[in-house]
């Protein structure tokens, strides 16, 4: 391995075929992300991992690493943009952290803390989104979906199923269940599926398990997401 790129002036080695995100993660450099998961095909949709590569904005999770790239990652301007993106994710859905059972284990919340997001900045949309509680073991609260497609990819790539998909465009985009009724109870999803555990927010939840982890013992109670993301096993992304 003798090829390198630089991230914020630090020389980072990489192998051919790696993305900037993969090279950075291997070198213990944190790039904020939500739709990226090391086990699944990159999607490049949340745009939180936007970095400047030779002066041009790129998604680090999809952009191939290349010799001599000068990447800007942890800069004030880029983090401000990331904060705005996170704020937009918050106002687009109904994310009420204080009563959400995912609080303390939520990557969206943890990224917001990491980026020092102190308010929503934008007006809340208050969308009207239904909840699908039809499945005996798994619940979808569409209010908290950020359309990262991790459930879609996990179902297809790891569970060998095709339970979820995105439908609609723009502001009308939404998560659907691939069944004639559109209900989760009619799908092949079971509680042990990876897709049932992969959601980075509180949109897909295992029923009747909320609040069982005491405050103080949740993933992000005492650790910043940058540390968690770099120091724990890949499965740690699932909660």
């Amino acid at each position: 391995m003798n090829k390198t790129l630089s991230i914020d002036g630090q020389e980072i080695p990489f192998e051919d075929g790696q993305t900037i995100m993969q090279a950075a993660t291997a070198a213990k450099v944190y790039i904020p992300h939500l739709c990226h998961h090391p086990e699944f095909t990159p999607h490049g949709s949340c745009k939180l991992c936007t970095v400047k590569v030779n002066g041009r904005n790129c998604s680090a999770c999809t952009f191939p690493a290349a010799e001599g790239q000068e990447v800007l990652n942890n800069t004030t301007d880029i983090n401000e943009d990331r904060k705005k993106i996170t704020q937009m994710l918050f106002v687009e859905g109904n994310h009420f952290c204080p009563s959400c059972e995912k609080t303390g284990n939520c990557q969206l919340q943890a990224v917001a803390y990491h980026l020092n997001m102190l308010d929503n900045h934008f007006p809340l949309f208050y969308p009207q989104r239904a909840m699908d509680a039809s499945h005996p073991e798994v619940l979808i609260d569409h209010n908290r979906c950020i359309f990262c497609t991790l459930c879609v990819r996990a179902s297809q790539e790891q569970d060998g199923k095709n339970v979820f998909a995105l439908s609609g465009r723009g502001i009308n985009k939404h998560l659907i269940v691939n069944t004639p009724s559109g209900k989760l109870k009619d799908s092949a999803l079971v509680a042990d599926d990876r897709a049932a555990h992969i959601c980075p927010t509180g949109a897909i939840l295992i029923k009747r398990t909320g609040y069982t982890i005491p405050i103080g013992q949740r993933i992000y109670d005492h650790h910043d997401i940058s540390d968690v993301s770099l120091t724990t096993a890949e499965a740690q992304h699932d909660h």
């Binding site: 909840m131 509680a133 609040y211």
Partner: peptide
Amino acid sequence: QGRPYWELPVLVQR
């Protein structure tokens, strides 16, 4: 109404 029951202790205390 419309929320799962296990949310109640945490939600209503607000």
